[in-house]
């Protein structure tokens, strides 16, 4: 959102991208967005044994305005959905979302009137993390994968290019129902 977005494509931009990505991934502040069972595992990840502090992420921000990662930990009900979107909107850019657990990712076993069938109906999701609930190790793995993604994220004209490519790929992608192969 600043000067770095205005840089011309080329060596300078990729260098800045790398530096910015490194800085962003090394100091990520998750917002506390615990909803259900997964929230307990998220707290466990922050506590002694799994120790999220090793990745510089132990400080969970109570206010979304100081956070850049939202870990949607648990089932999102229809009543919670507008709240979740508002919290997401309050987070400053750049921001990322991990959908933790099957309930947040797809509704999971709660295929019913009360639960939003996948938090990607409300906010864009970067990492889907399966499990009911996922083990703390799985959350750590998801966070490390997100770190890689953040490290490789683009800026300025490169970001626009990447967004365009992603959209084209998504439009061309085969719908699940038309895929062949093992049933999963």
């Amino acid at each position: 959102m600043g000067l770095e977005e205005k840089l011309p494509s080329g060596f300078l931009l990729t260098t800045v991208e790398q530096a910015a990505g490194w800085v962003r991934k090394s100091s990520m502040f998750p917002a506390t967005f615990g909803l259900a069972c997964c929230a307990i595992e998220m707290m466990t990840t922050g506590a002694g044994r799994y120790d999220l502090a090793r990745f510089g992420m132990e400080v969970f921000r109570g206010s979304p305005r100081q956070a850049d990662l939202m870990i949607v930990a648990g089932r999102v009900s229809q009543k919670m959905a507008p709240v979740l979107r508002q919290v997401y909107d309050q987070m400053p850019n750049p921001k990322w979302v991990i959908s933790m657990g099957v309930c947040a990712s797809s509704g999971g076993m709660f295929n019913n009137y009360a639960i939003v069938q996948g938090v990607d109906h409300i906010v864009p999701v970067d990492i889907y993390l399966p499990g009911c609930p996922p083990r703390p190790e799985m959350l750590l793995d998801a966070i490390l994968k997100l770190h890689q993604k953040v490290q490789g994220s683009k800026l300025g004209v490169n970001a626009e290019e990447a967004a365009r490519e992603a959209e084209e790929a998504a439009l061309k992608a085969l719908p699940t129902i038309e895929m062949k192969g093992l049933l999963r």
Binding site: A36, S77, K79, N111, Y113, I115
Partner: peptide, 11 residues
């Protein structure tokens, strides 16, 4: 309350 209503009883 109700922000985590899951409809378990109906399920």
């Amino acid at each position: 309350i109700g922000y985590l209503h899951t409809g378990i009883e109906k399920n």
